[in-house]
Write a protein that binds this DNA or RNA. Sequence first.
DNA 1: GCGAATATTTGAATCGATCCAACAAAAATG
DNA 2: CATTTTTGTTGGATCGATTCAAATATTCGC
Lengths: 359, 359
Amino acid sequence: MASLLEGQARPIRLADIAKAAGVSHGTASNVFSRPEIVRAEVRERVKAVAEQMGYAGPDPKGRLLRAGKVNAIGVATTEPLSYFFDDPFARVMMAGISEACDAVGAGIALVSAANQEKLAWNIQSALVDGFILFCIEGGSRLVDLTRERRLPFVALELGFQDETVSAIGIDNVAGARLAARHLAELGHRRFAVLSLGFADDRTGFATPEVVRSAVYTGTRDRLAGYFEELSRFGVDTANIPVYETENEEKSTKAGLEAIFAKGEPPTAILAMSDRMALVAIDWLKERGLDVPGDVSIVGFDGVADGALCTPPLTTIAQPITEIGRRAARMILDHDGAVRRETMGVELIVRASTGPACKG
Amino acid sequence: MASLLEGQARPIRLADIAKAAGVSHGTASNVFSRPEIVRAEVRERVKAVAEQMGYAGPDPKGRLLRAGKVNAIGVATTEPLSYFFDDPFARVMMAGISEACDAVGAGIALVSAANQEKLAWNIQSALVDGFILFCIEGGSRLVDLTRERRLPFVALELGFQDETVSAIGIDNVAGARLAARHLAELGHRRFAVLSLGFADDRTGFATPEVVRSAVYTGTRDRLAGYFEELSRFGVDTANIPVYETENEEKSTKAGLEAIFAKGEPPTAILAMSDRMALVAIDWLKERGLDVPGDVSIVGFDGVADGALCTPPLTTIAQPITEIGRRAARMILDHDGAVRRETMGVELIVRASTGPACKG
DNA sequence: GCGAATATTTGAATCGATCCAACAAAAATG
DNA sequence: CATTTTTGTTGGATCGATTCAAATATTCGC
């Protein structure tokens, strides 16, 4: 009952307190934001009045407008919000971002949307000082939308041609080469690639022109890395099937079906994400194929789940947490400059790769 | 270079556009928020000016103050921010909250803090329309702090005596009884309980008075449920060791050490969280004990990881996602009333429980 | 061509605070 | 006691928008 009435009443403002306590609003403000500069007697009186009137303290909405800073950074993606809590890669990244924000008491606002229109609106109306962009599917649109806000932002993934946007990512070519060399050195010669998208909304085998006109240069670079290295071992890369998935279970399985439906099955799979690699391991086991006995798999990302599955996944590990931390710092310490950072990657050999079988 | 200069310049305001286009603020505002009511010719002119001057669109900071609503809900905890992305229970809950927010285009702001002082500040200054409180460790303080904001909020976990706070949780007694009955029916008679805290910062064996004076009534209710049901099977509950942990690896292992250091080891463990149960399974396996051959374990929560471990965990499943959804809806549709909801739970029998061994 | 009806535009008020130059009062100094 | 200093307080300006009653244009019917 009481709370219902309270709900109806207009909330108490700082000005109300000031009037009731017989001081100016300037002084009233000081009581809360810089109590040390107001005389103890006055301070206590104002506080008492505030308490008695049920004042909730200075409303951040007002403060914010004046201060011009929200003290929060937005993390945006075109995926639904739950992506941040489901996707293992995103989760580790968020942990890094959280850490950097925690350290300076900055908040995190998650931005996303079911549809395009809402996404635009949500980005326009997010109360943040800057954005970190998870550029997966639809990354280029996300960048365009964010640019209009004219707030600092940093793209996760260097995969943008556009050198005018700040970004932080990894050396995709080097990472891919590491993966390819590892398999080639184990004697593998027949490969298949489970690829991320080269452009939005694509799925299926990628043709050379798809690759050439790639929007996502990160994907292109990884493929280039694979191919460069394999060529050095005399593998004819033109015959390697490259299947674009949406980096989730369904399309990855479809890709595996398609790959294994072809003539000679691969003895090694290069997956551009651990998520796909994990799905592949399950799929192969279901089909009675041994990993790595029959087929070896190398993932990409270095997500925690990879160490826990059976067999544990050999992968290219990104310093995900560190990327997250740096991205957050870039926004927090923004100085107007465009910054592009490239982080190193590391091959982690676990048990999903082994010598090529002679069959 | 250009961006550096832009960074220096004071950002363009709606008023600047209005002046430049020769219209009033009112009209300029309408061009962006209700374009249909302004004459096409004027609209285009204003838009052109805005475009040309590099106007970023109406600043949400201003809009917000006027509107009084932020269109975002805060999710708060006393744990560090990364808790939201690490803890399996929290993650599923967040997925539910996300879903409800996505549906109406509301944002989510994560609130947390390294230390007490900052937590208070972060709660006071969070730009949100209401809070969802993860009441784990330090839950009562979190509630007190939030109450001062005089914004709607809902506590996750009914574990509060305080009937004046909105909350949503589960029937802890019923869930606990389900777990206890399951084990008793399998013939177990020697039990140990891995307990959540009865009050803040506690760890170690819980004495009857600790239980009586419990702050966290959720913990108390679960224990009560266990004991009630076991009594019905003739078990002397007074001898059951109850070890309070902090629901993480270290203290849980300490608890197991302590429990198994006692005279007769239990044949069944009742864990008040899946997290503890999972740690227990690992710990037992390391010690060469078979689960469920030597010791059976029932968890609590029904988190995804429980299904994937070896052996898969028998547990009491909460409708976590649904709780999250409802909590978010409570804030979004807030009407000033205090609402307390209790959700049902379900026993999920997997492979971590089996008949009591006759040893 | 005139008045009524309708469509646009205006500008002041408001949202809830913080900041700061100017002023007032009290305390310290000579 | 007069003059600095120091300390506290005041009230107007500002942050960047939206709202709405009133003023002004335009269109329409006859």
